[in-house]
Design a protein around this nucleic acid. Structure first.
Length: 421
RNA sequence: GGGCGAGUACCCAAGUGGCCAACGGGGGCAGACUGUAAAUCUGCUGGCAUACGCCUUCGGGGGUUCGAAUCCCUCCUCGCCCA
């Protein structure tokens, strides 16, 4: 990559930045340390964090040092941005657990095996030892409350009915101190984050300029929103996680396959490591024949491959093909073996198969007997491709390959039942 | 410390003694239409029950009443104002 910054600009991944020319020259001049931080508020990263990780990856591929920061300390305090109420504080034990899990997920996207290429740090390591007095003198002295109050994230909270605690108010100082530490200890000179982080990021840049008289850089990407305005990865319902235990590779694939036409080009630019020219070709082909969903398929493949590996991406694609494009009753036994590993599945004794309501609840496709009955009423469920009703006796439904029942709710939820005797 | 106000289901929010499992909106799920898209229209959205109905729920606890989300007491949490 001759000009990484230009590439990112073309991908619409730069929203705000410090002096653009200085940033460009710094990146072009040689390897730099670049840092992206996320707070371990859950035991898994989600697709919202993926942008940062992919940007780190792009820098790493260009020979720079990626610094992934797990915010063990800031996670204890809570970022006031983007919410109207105080966070619930997490305890040490939970944070430890979360950081450990996140490290595994991170390591697949960003190479952490060679410290010169990438490292994972936890800001508790340098934040915990600082005393309150040191912090107030060394960090607090360099920042005016006036500036802090001017930040959008703070302003919003002050005007909200719940207000903001001093704890969360202090968050940006901790993050500023992180950047200072990484600058001193690792020579880090770029910080990145979503545009909602810009205030916090700039605080760090200012702090370093005041204390070290050094000009460091930063940029943010536009907060990813779907064309319907919802915040990606934070859809009210189920989040899409990077941990395969929480969101299977198949489910992750489905999340991206279902991307809206209007969003798919931008998402490819954001998440795919393919060159821009190739993505533009795919986008152009997609405009010609959107119903083929080739762009969505490419996007889904690239993301799953990045997060879980090529093998998982292919397996997830095969499972999806079986469920959506071909007749499940004609699928081979081997295909079902694979499918069982990709979609939710369960084993049920032959004697327990019969009543559709009980079976639907047992598989989790319905949340309660009432939910199952409502769904059956609305003809939402099918077994082996045939619609079910309350009278369907699953015991007499012919099992595929002698042992499988493929249950479906709506168009998108599947569950494979293996019947044993 | 004092005064005022608020806490309702996933979220916002109506309801101020029975017609309340609780208006409305959002979100979610499903059906029709489709391309595993969007838009649109329709249905559903506490649990048990085929059903009559029963049970649990309106910040926590206690009370008044035949009957409470609604009235009283108390506690907790939060906001605004005064000190």
């Amino acid at each position: 990559m001759t000009d990484l910054i230009a590439d990112l600009e073309a991908r619409n991944l730069i929203h705000d930045s410090t002096d653009r020319e200085a940033l460009r020259q710094s990146v072009a001049a040689g390897p730099v340390g670049i840092y992206y931080g996320c707070d371990p508020t859950a035991d898994s990263l989600h697709v919202g964090n993926l942008i940062g990780l992919v940007v780190l990856r792009r820098f790493q591929d260009a020979g720079h040092q990626a610094i992934a920061l797990a915010g063990g300390a800031t996670g204890m305090v809570g970022d006031p941005g983007g919410r109207s109420e105080e966070r619930n504080l997490l305890d040490q034990e939970t944070l430890d657990h979360n950081v450990a899990r996140i490290k595994g997920q991170l390591g697949r996207i960003v190479d952490l095996s060679d410290p010169a290429r990438g490292i994972l740090v936890d800001n508790r390591d340098w934040t915990e030892p600082i005393t309150v007095l040191e912090f107030l003198r060394d960090v607090g002295k360099h920042v005016t409350v006036n500036q802090m109050l001017a930040r959008e994230s703070i302003k919003v909270r002050i005007e909200s009915e719940h207000g903001i605690s001093f704890t969360e108010f202090s968050y940006m100082l901790l993050q500023a101190n992180d950047y200072l530490h990484l600058h001193d200890a690792h020579g880090c000179s770029i910080q990145i984050g979503g545009s909602d982080q810009w205030g916090n990021i700039i605080s760090g840049v200012d702090l370093i300029r005041r204390k070290r008289h050094a000009a460091v850089h930063a940029f943010s990407w536009p907060l990813l929103t779907a064309s319907d305005g919802s915040k990606l990865g934070k859809t009210t319902g189920a989040r899409t996680w990077l941990d395969p235990e929480k969101t299977s590779p198949y489910a992750l694939r489905q999340h991206f396959v279902q991307t809206a036409d209007d969003d798919v080009r931008q998402q490819l630019l954001t998440f795919s490591l393919r060159p821009i020219a190739e993505i533009e070709e795919i986008a152009a082909a997609h405009l010609e024949a959107p119903q083929r969903r080739e762009a969505q398929r490419t996007l889904a493949h690239d993301v799953v491959s990045l997060v879980h590996g090529e093998g998982a991406a292919v397996a997830a694609a095969d499972a999806a093909d079986l469920l959506f494009t071909s007749d499940p009753t004609g699928a081979s036994e081997e295909a079902f073996d694979v499918l069982a590993g990709e979609i939710p599945s369960s084993r049920i004794a032959a004697g327990d198969v019969g009543d559709p309501v009980a079976t639907l609840v047992a598989t989790g496709l319905a949340s309660s007997n009432g939910d199952a009955r409502r769904g059956l009423d609305q003809r939402a469920f099918s077994v082996n491709g045939a619609k079910m009703d309350e009278g369907t006796d699953l015991a007499v439904v012919e099992r595929l390959h002698g042992r499988y029942l493929l249950l479906r709710k709506g168009k998108k939820s599947h569950h494979l039942v293996e019947v044993f005797s």
